[in-house]
Design a protein around this nucleic acid. Structure first.
Length: 394
DNA sequence: TCTGGGGTCCTAGGACCC
DNA sequence: TCTGGGGTCCTAGGACCC
């Protein structure tokens, strides 16, 4: 029995959502109709394109490029700042709307999800007409447009939703794979990025068709255990199920690009203090504890270093995370100016099984834990900025 | 390149143990 | 030990995605 999967993808999500916000708040201009982008803050050295309008795209502007470069391609370009809180609300609105029709929805990112239509087809009938109805309803009721891709698995549904935009429904069933995606350049295949495509071109594999028909043993030396997966993808084969319960996340990270490169340990520690707090807050919100703490440093040449420590006792305490991070910096930083600092917490557990050692006591941990919880509650009540750790705002 | 932030998964080398 | 092979864990880095 063939599966029927929908992939629902908001068109130019950040830009569409900002357009909706501006229209709702009295603007006469729909920024979807002009050359415009959502962009980061250039002063804070985060000046890249996060989303672009269809017209901006016609100027050759791509997501991820610098605003400087985007402006050069299109001198009249309008740049708007991101509104992450509003985006999250719109995302929730969309997914909750879809849940009216089916509980079998897998959230893939803030603006994309999969829906297992096969399970509800008896209720709603033919998938193509239902997808069209759904797309029109979303536009009318939510004020932004989506693409819907229909396929026999998640990979095909996702590829289909990308065909032509905006506000379109496309199908890519198994028996359409040859006709619809084999003629496309290899870069268009989901999972082929900027490192893999040159390797494939070197092997004279330029179109998805070439990969689908490639010889496994010829590719194996270059792609090892990924070879079969790669060839399967080109054939449109994918057996991943739609998973509606979001799996517990495996780690949390928080990074900060600094307005200026940091050249002293004190500056790095100061930047890390706030990052450690954010990690602690995320972990405590879900009652989780990390057994591995990693620091991330990006130097002024964009080289990234990581260094990690496995803990005897899992933690979610701001102070402990911060102290470990400091120690890790001491162990690896070679004085190269630092552009970005970050911390990642991994190997998460749900309970604190405390191994008593000679050097720390469970009582101390409980005291610190109380302190963090109290601060979290105050921040929740009065806003994030009400309490600052000494030095964190220098 | 005037080049973000938050995730997941994979790989390769070394340590350690049997 | 003049020492082999395999399994597991740990660590750092890399690829890819939105």
């Amino acid at each position: 029995m063939d599966r029927i999967i929908f992939h629902i993808d908001v068109n130019n999500a950040f830009l569409s959502w900002s357009a909706k916000y501006l229209l709702q708040n009295g603007s006469k201009l729909d920024i979807r109709e002009i050359p415009s982008v959502i962009g980061g803050d250039e002063q804070r050295r985060a000046g890249i394109v996060l989303a672009k309008s269809t017209i901006a795209k016609k100027f050759g502007i791509v997501t991820g490029e610098t605003l400087y470069s985007a402006r050069r391609k299109c001198p009249g370009l309008k740049i708007y700042p991101p509104m992450h809180t509003f985006y999250q609300e719109q995302s929730n609105l969309l997914f909750n709307y879809l849940k009216n029709y089916s509980p079998d929805i897998e959230t893939f990112s803030i603006d994309e999800c999969f829906l297992d239509y096969g399970k509800v087809k008896k209720l709603y009938g033919d998938q193509l007409s239902f997808a069209n109805k759904l797309k029109n309803e979303i536009k009318e009721k939510l004020g932004f447009t989506v693409n819907i891709g229909i396929g026999n698995n998640k990979l095909c549904a996702k590829m289909a939703s990308d065909f032509s935009k905006p506000n379109q429904v496309h199908t890519l069933y198994m028996n359409e794979v040859e006709e619809k995606i084999w003629p496309l350049p290899i870069e268009e295949l989901f999972g082929i990025g900027r490192k893999t495509s040159p390797k494939l071109h070197d092997l004279n594999i330029n179109y998805i068709r070439d990969l689908a028909n490639a010889d496994y043993s010829a590719l194996y030396p270059y792609f090892k255990n990924q070879t079969a997966i790669l060839i399967d993808k080109a054939k449109g084969i994918d057996n991943e199920p739609v998973i509606s319960e979001r799996p517990e996340y495996k780690g949390v990270s928080n990074t900060k690009t600094l307005p200026k490169d940091l050249t002293t340990k004190e500056e790095i520690f100061n930047a890390l203090r706030g990052v450690a707090e954010n990690i602690g807050i995320s972990l405590r919100k879900d009652n989780r504890y990390a057994k591995v703490i990693t620091i991330i440093l990006k130097d002024c040449y964009f080289k990234v270093y990581t260094h990690q420590k496995k803990l005897k006792n899992a933690t979610n305490l701001n102070l402990e995370i911060f102290n470990i991070a400091k120690k890790l910096v001491n162990e690896i930083w070679d004085e190269t100016p630092i552009r970005l600092v970050g911390i990642r917490a991994d190997n998460l557990v749900n309970e604190l099984n405390y191994q008593v050692s000679l050097f720390d006591s469970f009582e101390d941990v409980k005291k610190l834990s109380k302190l963090d919880e109290t601060v979290d509650k105050l921040k929740d009540k009065y806003g994030i900025d009400i309490i600052k750790t000494a030095n964190s705002d220098k």
